[in-house]
Protein backbone atom coordinates (compact mmCIF):
# COMPACT_ATOMS: atom_id res chain seq x y z
CA UNK A 1 0.00 0.00 0.00
CA UNK A 2 2.78 2.40 0.93
CA UNK A 3 4.49 1.51 -2.34
CA UNK A 4 1.34 2.33 -4.30
CA UNK A 5 0.93 5.70 -2.61
CA UNK A 6 4.58 6.64 -3.06
CA UNK A 7 4.45 5.62 -6.70
CA UNK A 8 1.22 7.51 -7.28
CA UNK A 9 2.69 10.64 -5.71
CA UNK A 10 5.76 10.46 -7.93
CA UNK A 11 3.63 9.82 -11.01
CA UNK A 12 1.56 12.90 -10.24
CA UNK A 13 4.68 15.02 -9.93
CA UNK A 14 6.18 13.73 -13.16
CA UNK A 15 2.91 14.16 -15.01
CA UNK A 16 2.46 17.73 -13.85
CA UNK A 17 5.88 18.51 -15.32
CA UNK A 18 4.85 17.09 -18.65
CA UNK A 19 3.49 19.50 -21.23
CA UNK A 20 1.60 16.90 -23.25
CA UNK A 21 -0.27 15.92 -20.16
CA UNK A 22 -1.15 19.48 -19.28
CA UNK A 23 -2.54 19.86 -22.75
CA UNK A 24 -4.75 16.80 -22.63
CA UNK A 25 -5.95 17.14 -19.10
CA UNK A 26 -6.22 20.87 -18.64
CA UNK A 27 -5.93 22.96 -21.80
CA UNK A 28 -8.07 20.74 -24.01
CA UNK A 29 -10.88 20.21 -21.47
CA UNK A 30 -10.97 23.93 -20.74
CA UNK A 31 -10.94 24.81 -24.42
CA UNK A 32 -13.88 22.47 -24.90
CA UNK A 33 -15.58 23.91 -21.87
CA UNK A 34 -15.43 27.44 -23.21
CA UNK A 35 -16.25 26.37 -26.76
CA UNK A 36 -19.37 24.58 -25.58
CA UNK A 37 -20.29 27.17 -23.00
CA UNK A 38 -19.81 30.33 -25.02
CA UNK A 39 -20.31 29.21 -28.61
CA UNK A 40 -22.74 26.31 -28.55
CA UNK A 41 -24.70 27.29 -25.45
CA UNK A 42 -24.21 31.03 -26.07
CA UNK A 43 -23.67 31.38 -22.33
CA UNK A 44 -27.28 30.50 -21.49
CA UNK A 45 -27.34 28.72 -18.11
CA UNK A 46 -29.86 26.00 -19.11
CA UNK A 47 -27.98 25.26 -22.29
CA UNK A 48 -24.66 25.12 -20.45
CA UNK A 49 -26.23 22.80 -17.89
CA UNK A 50 -27.36 20.54 -20.71
CA UNK A 51 -23.83 20.48 -22.14
CA UNK A 52 -22.07 19.85 -18.83
CA UNK A 53 -22.49 16.09 -19.34
CA UNK A 54 -20.58 16.10 -22.65
CA UNK A 55 -18.00 18.55 -21.27
CA UNK A 56 -17.21 16.41 -18.24
CA UNK A 57 -17.20 13.31 -20.43
CA UNK A 58 -14.48 14.84 -22.57
CA UNK A 59 -12.39 15.54 -19.51
CA UNK A 60 -12.82 12.05 -18.12
CA UNK A 61 -12.46 10.15 -21.39
CA UNK A 62 -9.29 12.09 -22.20
CA UNK A 63 -7.54 10.25 -19.38
CA UNK A 64 -6.94 7.16 -21.44
CA UNK A 65 -4.46 9.11 -23.57
CA UNK A 66 -2.20 9.97 -20.68
CA UNK A 67 -2.24 6.52 -19.12
CA UNK A 68 -1.58 4.59 -22.29
CA UNK A 69 1.17 6.92 -23.48
CA UNK A 70 2.94 6.80 -20.16
CA UNK A 71 2.82 3.03 -19.96
CA UNK A 72 4.07 2.50 -23.48
CA UNK A 73 6.92 5.03 -23.16
CA UNK A 74 7.99 3.65 -19.83
CA UNK A 75 8.12 0.21 -21.34
CA UNK A 76 9.82 1.29 -24.57
CA UNK A 77 12.52 3.30 -22.80
CA UNK A 78 13.33 0.52 -20.35
CA UNK A 79 12.03 2.48 -17.37
CA UNK A 80 9.75 -0.36 -16.32
CA UNK A 81 12.60 -2.85 -16.23
CA UNK A 82 14.45 -0.63 -13.80
CA UNK A 83 11.37 -0.69 -11.57
CA UNK A 84 11.21 -4.43 -11.98
CA UNK A 85 14.64 -4.80 -10.35
CA UNK A 86 13.02 -3.61 -7.14
CA UNK A 87 10.50 -5.73 -5.24
CA UNK A 88 7.43 -4.20 -6.90
CA UNK A 89 4.37 -6.07 -8.12
CA UNK A 90 2.85 -5.35 -11.51
CA UNK A 91 -0.40 -4.61 -9.70
CA UNK A 92 1.30 -1.77 -7.79
CA UNK A 93 2.37 -0.22 -11.08
CA UNK A 94 -1.17 -0.44 -12.47
CA UNK A 95 -3.06 0.66 -9.39
CA UNK A 96 -0.70 3.57 -8.77
CA UNK A 97 -1.21 4.85 -12.30
CA UNK A 98 -4.99 4.74 -12.00
CA UNK A 99 -4.86 6.30 -8.56
CA UNK A 100 -2.64 9.10 -9.80
CA UNK A 101 -5.13 9.64 -12.57
CA UNK A 102 -8.00 10.29 -10.15
CA UNK A 103 -6.01 12.91 -8.36
CA UNK A 104 -5.04 14.55 -11.63
CA UNK A 105 -8.48 14.58 -13.23
CA UNK A 106 -10.80 15.27 -10.30
CA UNK A 107 -9.49 18.82 -9.80
CA UNK A 108 -10.19 19.59 -13.45
CA UNK A 109 -13.73 18.23 -13.10
CA UNK A 110 -14.33 20.32 -9.99
CA UNK A 111 -12.78 23.34 -11.67
CA UNK A 112 -15.16 22.96 -14.60
CA UNK A 113 -18.16 22.72 -12.31
CA UNK A 114 -17.03 25.87 -10.51
CA UNK A 115 -16.48 27.70 -13.79
CA UNK A 116 -19.97 26.71 -14.93
CA UNK A 117 -21.38 27.97 -11.67
CA UNK A 118 -19.58 31.28 -11.60
CA UNK A 119 -19.10 32.17 -15.27
CA UNK A 120 -22.26 30.78 -16.81
CA UNK A 121 -24.40 30.96 -13.68
CA UNK A 122 -25.52 27.37 -13.81
CA UNK A 123 -27.44 27.06 -10.57
CA UNK A 124 -27.81 23.33 -10.11
CA UNK A 125 -25.81 20.29 -11.06
CA UNK A 126 -28.52 17.86 -10.12
CA UNK A 127 -27.40 14.93 -8.05
CA UNK A 128 -23.74 15.65 -7.29
CA UNK A 129 -23.20 12.30 -5.63
CA UNK A 130 -24.29 10.52 -8.81
CA UNK A 131 -22.09 12.85 -10.84
CA UNK A 132 -19.01 12.06 -8.77
CA UNK A 133 -19.62 8.34 -8.63
CA UNK A 134 -19.98 8.31 -12.40
CA UNK A 135 -16.84 10.40 -12.83
CA UNK A 136 -14.85 8.05 -10.58
CA UNK A 137 -16.14 4.99 -12.42
CA UNK A 138 -15.43 6.68 -15.73
CA UNK A 139 -11.83 7.53 -14.80
CA UNK A 140 -11.23 3.92 -13.78
CA UNK A 141 -12.90 2.44 -16.83
CA UNK A 142 -11.38 4.73 -19.45
CA UNK A 143 -8.00 4.69 -17.71
CA UNK A 144 -7.91 0.89 -17.61
CA UNK A 145 -8.89 0.87 -21.26
CA UNK A 146 -5.82 3.02 -21.95
CA UNK A 147 -3.66 0.49 -20.12
CA UNK A 148 -5.13 -2.32 -22.19
CA UNK A 149 -4.35 -0.42 -25.40
CA UNK A 150 -0.78 0.16 -24.22
CA UNK A 151 -0.44 -3.54 -23.44
CA UNK A 152 -1.57 -4.92 -26.78
CA UNK A 153 0.57 -2.47 -28.78
CA UNK A 154 4.32 -2.43 -28.97
CA UNK A 155 5.32 1.05 -29.95
CA UNK A 156 4.29 4.60 -29.34
CA UNK A 157 3.02 4.90 -32.94
CA UNK A 158 0.77 1.88 -32.66
CA UNK A 159 -0.64 3.16 -29.41
CA UNK A 160 -1.26 6.57 -30.95
CA UNK A 161 -3.14 5.11 -33.91
CA UNK A 162 -5.43 2.96 -31.79
CA UNK A 163 -5.99 5.83 -29.39
CA UNK A 164 -7.02 8.12 -32.24
CA UNK A 165 -9.51 5.58 -33.54
CA UNK A 166 -10.98 5.00 -30.11
CA UNK A 167 -11.07 8.68 -29.37
CA UNK A 168 -13.01 9.56 -32.49
CA UNK A 169 -15.46 6.75 -31.92
CA UNK A 170 -15.90 7.77 -28.32
CA UNK A 171 -16.47 11.44 -28.91
CA UNK A 172 -18.45 11.40 -32.15
CA UNK A 173 -20.79 8.47 -31.66
CA UNK A 174 -21.61 8.96 -28.02
CA UNK A 175 -23.37 12.27 -27.91
CA UNK A 176 -20.33 13.99 -26.46
CA UNK A 177 -19.90 16.27 -29.47
CA UNK A 178 -23.25 16.24 -31.24
CA UNK A 179 -26.17 15.39 -28.95
CA UNK A 180 -27.26 11.82 -29.40
CA UNK A 181 -30.79 12.90 -30.25
CA UNK A 182 -29.78 14.75 -33.42
CA UNK A 183 -27.43 12.08 -34.75
CA UNK A 184 -28.74 9.96 -37.66
CA UNK A 185 -30.77 7.05 -36.47
CA UNK A 186 -28.16 4.51 -37.59
CA UNK A 187 -25.42 6.28 -35.66
CA UNK A 188 -27.60 6.44 -32.57
CA UNK A 189 -28.01 2.68 -32.71
CA UNK A 190 -24.26 2.18 -33.07
CA UNK A 191 -23.73 4.61 -30.23
CA UNK A 192 -25.67 2.29 -27.98
CA UNK A 193 -22.73 -0.11 -28.19
CA UNK A 194 -20.26 2.42 -26.83
CA UNK A 195 -19.44 2.84 -23.16
CA UNK A 196 -19.07 6.55 -23.72
CA UNK A 197 -22.71 6.87 -24.70
CA UNK A 198 -23.85 5.48 -21.37
CA UNK A 199 -21.36 7.64 -19.60
CA UNK A 200 -22.51 10.87 -21.28
CA UNK A 201 -26.13 9.88 -20.84
CA UNK A 202 -25.65 8.97 -17.18
CA UNK A 203 -23.95 12.27 -16.43
CA UNK A 204 -26.73 14.19 -18.16
CA UNK A 205 -29.45 12.31 -16.32
CA UNK A 206 -27.69 12.93 -13.03
CA UNK A 207 -27.30 16.62 -13.70
CA UNK A 208 -30.52 17.45 -15.52
CA UNK A 209 -32.98 15.04 -13.96
CA UNK A 210 -31.38 14.82 -10.55
CA UNK A 211 -31.12 11.07 -11.13
CA UNK A 212 -30.14 8.95 -8.16
CA UNK A 213 -27.60 6.20 -8.57
CA UNK A 214 -30.24 3.51 -8.26
CA UNK A 215 -32.27 5.00 -11.08
CA UNK A 216 -29.10 4.94 -13.18
CA UNK A 217 -28.70 1.22 -12.58
CA UNK A 218 -27.92 0.21 -16.15
CA UNK A 219 -25.31 2.92 -16.56
CA UNK A 220 -23.66 2.32 -13.21
CA UNK A 221 -23.53 -1.44 -13.59
CA UNK A 222 -22.19 -1.33 -17.10
CA UNK A 223 -19.47 1.10 -16.05
CA UNK A 224 -18.59 -1.02 -13.02
CA UNK A 225 -18.48 -4.15 -15.16
CA UNK A 226 -16.32 -2.41 -17.69
CA UNK A 227 -13.95 -0.86 -15.14
CA UNK A 228 -13.52 -4.23 -13.43
CA UNK A 229 -13.03 -6.16 -16.63
CA UNK A 230 -10.63 -3.63 -18.15
CA UNK A 231 -8.58 -3.46 -14.94
CA UNK A 232 -8.43 -7.22 -14.72
CA UNK A 233 -7.36 -7.57 -18.32
CA UNK A 234 -4.81 -4.79 -18.08
CA UNK A 235 -3.22 -6.67 -15.18
CA UNK A 236 -3.23 -9.91 -17.19
CA UNK A 237 -1.60 -8.26 -20.18
CA UNK A 238 0.86 -6.06 -18.30
CA UNK A 239 4.39 -6.39 -19.68
CA UNK A 240 7.57 -5.03 -18.15
CA UNK A 241 9.57 -5.28 -21.36
CA UNK A 242 8.78 -4.64 -25.01
CA UNK A 243 10.23 -8.06 -25.93
CA UNK A 244 8.03 -9.90 -23.50
CA UNK A 245 5.59 -11.98 -25.47
CA UNK A 246 1.93 -11.23 -25.26
CA UNK A 247 -0.26 -14.17 -24.47
CA UNK A 248 -1.40 -15.60 -27.79
CA UNK A 249 -4.96 -14.49 -27.22
CA UNK A 250 -4.07 -11.02 -25.97
CA UNK A 251 -6.02 -9.24 -28.67
CA UNK A 252 -9.02 -11.35 -27.76
CA UNK A 253 -8.62 -10.32 -24.17
CA UNK A 254 -8.58 -6.71 -25.28
CA UNK A 255 -11.72 -7.23 -27.29
CA UNK A 256 -13.29 -8.82 -24.22
CA UNK A 257 -13.31 -5.42 -22.51
CA UNK A 258 -15.97 -4.40 -25.00
CA UNK A 259 -18.10 -7.43 -24.22
CA UNK A 260 -20.38 -5.90 -21.58
CA UNK A 261 -21.16 -3.13 -23.99
CA UNK A 262 -21.93 -5.41 -26.87
CA UNK A 263 -24.47 -7.18 -24.70
CA UNK A 264 -25.77 -3.93 -23.34
CA UNK A 265 -25.94 -2.46 -26.85
CA UNK A 266 -27.97 -5.36 -28.16
CA UNK A 267 -30.30 -5.22 -25.22
CA UNK A 268 -30.67 -1.47 -25.27
CA UNK A 269 -31.31 -1.49 -29.02
CA UNK A 270 -34.20 -3.86 -28.49
CA UNK A 271 -35.75 -2.81 -25.23
CA UNK A 272 -34.09 0.37 -24.11
CA UNK A 273 -35.52 3.80 -23.67
CA UNK A 274 -32.18 5.55 -23.61
CA UNK A 275 -32.61 7.13 -27.01
CA UNK A 276 -36.08 8.36 -26.17
CA UNK A 277 -34.90 9.80 -22.87
CA UNK A 278 -31.93 11.44 -24.57
CA UNK A 279 -34.27 13.09 -27.06
CA UNK A 280 -36.50 14.15 -24.24
CA UNK A 281 -33.65 15.73 -22.30
CA UNK A 282 -32.61 17.63 -25.36
CA UNK A 283 -36.02 19.19 -25.69
CA UNK A 284 -35.18 20.79 -22.41
CA UNK A 285 -37.75 19.44 -20.02
CA UNK A 286 -35.39 18.03 -17.47
CA UNK A 287 -37.70 17.19 -14.62
CA UNK A 288 -37.93 14.27 -12.27
CA UNK A 289 -41.12 13.03 -13.92
CA UNK A 290 -39.59 12.42 -17.33
CA UNK A 291 -40.35 9.14 -19.08
CA UNK A 292 -39.91 6.09 -16.89
CA UNK A 293 -36.84 5.10 -18.88
CA UNK A 294 -34.61 4.78 -15.86
CA UNK A 295 -37.17 3.42 -13.52
CA UNK A 296 -37.27 -0.05 -14.92
Amino acid sequence: MKTILTLAAVRIRITLRNKTFLFFSLIMPLAIFFLYGSVFAKGKPEAVAYLMGPILSFTVMGTFWGLSMQLVTWREQGILRRFRLAPIAASSMIVSSILANYLLILPTVIFELLLARFIYHVTTFGNLISVFVLVILGITAFGAMGLVVASVTNTMQETQIINQLLWFALIFLSGATVPLAVLPHMVQRIGLFLPATYFVYGLQRAMLADAHLYTLGTVVFSLIAWAALASFISSQLFRWEPEAKLPRNAKLWAVATILPFVLLGIWENHNGKLLATAAYMMEGRPTENTPPADKR
Binding site: K2, T3, T6, L7, V10, R13, I14, R17, N18, W74, Q77, G78, I79, R81, R82, L85, A86, P87, I88
Partner: peptide, 22 residues
Protein backbone atom coordinates in the same frame (compact mmCIF):
# COMPACT_ATOMS: atom_id res chain seq x y z
CA UNK B 1 21.25 -2.44 -16.36
CA UNK B 2 22.69 -2.08 -19.83
CA UNK B 3 19.48 -0.81 -21.42
CA UNK B 4 17.38 1.26 -19.08
CA UNK B 5 16.25 4.75 -18.28
CA UNK B 6 14.26 6.78 -15.81
CA UNK B 7 11.40 9.17 -16.47
CA UNK B 8 12.76 12.37 -18.02
CA UNK B 9 11.11 14.66 -15.53
CA UNK B 10 12.11 12.78 -12.41
CA UNK B 11 14.61 14.64 -10.26
CA UNK B 12 17.77 12.92 -9.03
CA UNK B 13 16.83 13.08 -5.36
CA UNK B 14 13.27 11.96 -6.09
CA UNK B 15 14.52 8.97 -8.05
CA UNK B 16 16.78 7.67 -5.32
CA UNK B 17 14.21 8.32 -2.57
CA UNK B 18 11.51 6.59 -4.58
CA UNK B 19 13.61 3.48 -5.03
CA UNK B 20 14.71 3.55 -1.40
CA UNK B 21 11.04 3.43 -0.41
CA UNK B 22 10.59 0.04 -2.09
Amino acid sequence: LQATSLPDKLRVSEAIRLFASF
